[in-house]
Write a protein that binds this DNA or RNA. Structure first.
Lengths: 106, 106
DNA sequence: AATTTGCGCAACCGAAAAGTTGCATATATA
DNA sequence: TATATATGCAACTTTTCGGTTGCGCAAATT
């Protein structure tokens, strides 16, 4: 089972779950109430999110609270970083081109 | 076919293709040479990347050059932004807690 | 003009993923 | 203690995905 963060966030339901539990931890039932999907289906998504460590479980009596491991999101951020650099360079190049044109028209 | 950026970057081969063409545009054959995968397989990935507008094609004779549409990557960045905010808040809260502890031990 | 080259497209196949159903288990509650 | 509730897990089905094969077409090359 190739489970990585990128695969985890590929599913729109999982992205919604992430958004839902980003601020406060929730039980599977509470989460499922926000979707058309069945409890089991949500449970499976939660398992996938847990397996790739995007989510943490906390047992409390017979309830299990799920919350987002926000640190793991930084992995995506780190991957994006290289491209952020590129688009900044591109932007600067464009700036230069524009200022050159401006000078020429003067 | 539900094709979005998140689904596109879920596949490791596609992420490699993105990295490869980020700086200069390349033909499918040239791209395929960098992988074990067949030309057709790479071509299919390129189609998916094109469909979700992460990649642009430029015909030049019988060759087609593919290049990254870096702007589209910003969509992922925009999605991450909300979580970036959260982890900054968390970090500041931690700072506060630490400084409170520091004061108490004084 | 015939052949080679670069490429896309459609059909097919096997593996993995998503969803459903039916349990089992542990903790509350009556 | 019997029952209801919260949840996970395993088995099964359906869908999706990645890859291969085979074809067609247009641009280069001979």
């Amino acid at each position: 089972m190739r489970r990585d963060v990128f695969q985890a966030i590929a599913d729109p339901t999982r992205r919604s779950i992430i958004a839902l539990i980003a601020l406060q931890s929730m039980t599977p039932n509470a989460i499922a109430e926000n979707f058309d999907a069945s409890r089991q289906s949500i449970s499976k998504h939660l398992r996938i999110l847990t397996e790739c460590e995007l989510v943490r479980q906390e047992q409390q009596g017979r309830e299990i609270f799920y919350s987002l491991k926000i640190e793991k999101m930084k992995e995506i951020d780190a991957w994006l970083e290289q491209y952020r650099k590129i688009w900044e360079i591109r932007f600067n190049q464009l700036e230069n081109v524009l200022s050159t044109i401006k000078k020429q028209t003067k």
